[in-house]
Design a protein around this nucleic acid. Structure first.
Lengths: 227, 227
DNA sequence: CGGCATCCATTTTGATACTG
DNA sequence: CAGTATCAAAATGGATGCCG
């Protein structure tokens, strides 16, 4: 089971040797919002078979990017989490997401799957450090039965799967409305027109509207104008 | 020749649908420093056959990330260049490179190829905006017979293959010394101990030493301590 | 040199059946 | 659930030959 490599003494190539194979970066993406169980990972990655998933996880583990853990009680079920090295792939994945938001996101295609966590990642990708200056708050996002929270601390942001302990503000949306966010609709807009319902600290909610300015999507090709 | 896709309505997945296949991101990396000819591309990507290279280029072209051009006289030979969308993958590739510099670069392995351009990319990846505040200068880097230049403009940097029109300062190194840069040796250090020879504006050269602080490489795994 | 076509050995993957 | 085993379908790597 030799590992295939580009055999280049180059930081980018070395990185791609580790995480450039099919599914690997998406697997890391799933783990970026916290530990996940084998089955949940597979659910987030339709098309990835159990065999390949197991192999990828083993590789990430062997290379020190992920580790197998046991969820705290009462769950006590096995799960996978990122190591420090794995976490630090976050900026690279967010950079890819930022590019995609601008150059590759148009309407959802008929057979594309969607999970709210991906939209959260999209939000995180266009997080505006400047706009968050001096802000220290925890937002909770509820989308159907999925819950996430974002902890913002003066220019830094951390997004995790699961409820917050003591959120300063809560945003509740239908998955459909949430979908609009990835499609290019700004979060502030959705709050204003009521497709998102909010509660919590007024000032914290006011700040929220400016935290995630989405880039204007642009077509890469001339023939992309027709939608 | 159907395009394989993850079928996820997610900015990261959509991006990887376009550039996530083997070789594609490295191909973009090669083009990041300026247009390149078919043969030069292949030279930079040992192991990639002409057939697959042609296919990848065609895909990038079809997707609006690259375009086929003709080099200006006297060359007049066909070449490939990035479009605006392609250029904007730069930040994502640099993020991967930054990760690699910290977590994946150790000594050069016996059969790894190396090109000075990759080291330049490494420099660009750890470019320190703050340290470049107020600086406006063009540096030329000469490594054996390869020449690059970096145009720095108050926090922004652009690195291109080829000589500069009117460099403010020039750095000359052997490929061996240049290799040290990727290996974790700071550029400032190399200048001080004389393995890089420099000429040009004194002040501009002084600033250079702080522009590219390399991250301390860290092992991902416990068993990586032994070298 | 630039670039496509073809053939073939080897890997990688996708899908599914199966076990603790 | 978590994960292994198995097999068919793609993707890749390498060699080569061809043509402008």
């Amino acid at each position: 089971m030799e590992q295939r490599t580009y055999n280049q003494y180059c930081a980018t190539a070395r990185t791609l040797d580790l995480v450039g194979e099919r599914w690997t970066l998406l697997l890391v993406r799933e783990l970026l919002t916290g530990p996940k169980r084998f089955g949940d990972l597979q659910a987030g990655l339709r098309g990835l078979g159990t065999g390949l998933l197991a192999a990828r996880l083993k590789l990430l583990e062997r290379e020190g990017l992920a580790r197998r853990t046991v969820l705290p009680p009462p769950a006590r079920t096995p799960a996978y989490a990122l190591t420090e090295a794995g976490e630090e792939l976050g900026p690279a994945i967010l950079a890819l997401a930022r590019w995609g938001l601008k150059w590759a996101m148009d309407e959802r295609r008929p057979d594309e799957t969607f999970h709210p966590g991906w939209a959260l990642l999209g939000l995180q990708a266009c997080f505006d450090q400047e706009a968050a200056a001096g802000l220290r708050a925890v937002y909770e996002f509820r989308v159907d039965d999925e819950v996430f929270h974002a902890r913002i601390d003066d220019g830094a942001i951390e997004v995790l799967h699961g409820p917050a302990q003591r959120p300063d503000a809560t945003v509740t949306m239908s998955e459909e409305a949430f979908l609009g966010l990835v499609g290019g609709r700004a979060l502030g807009q959705a709050i204003e027109d009521g497709s998102a319902s909010v509660s919590g600290d007024e000032e914290v909610l006011r700040r929220l509207k400016d935290l995630f300015p989405l880039p204007a999507p642009r077509p890469r090709r001339a023939d992309d104008q027709a939608g």
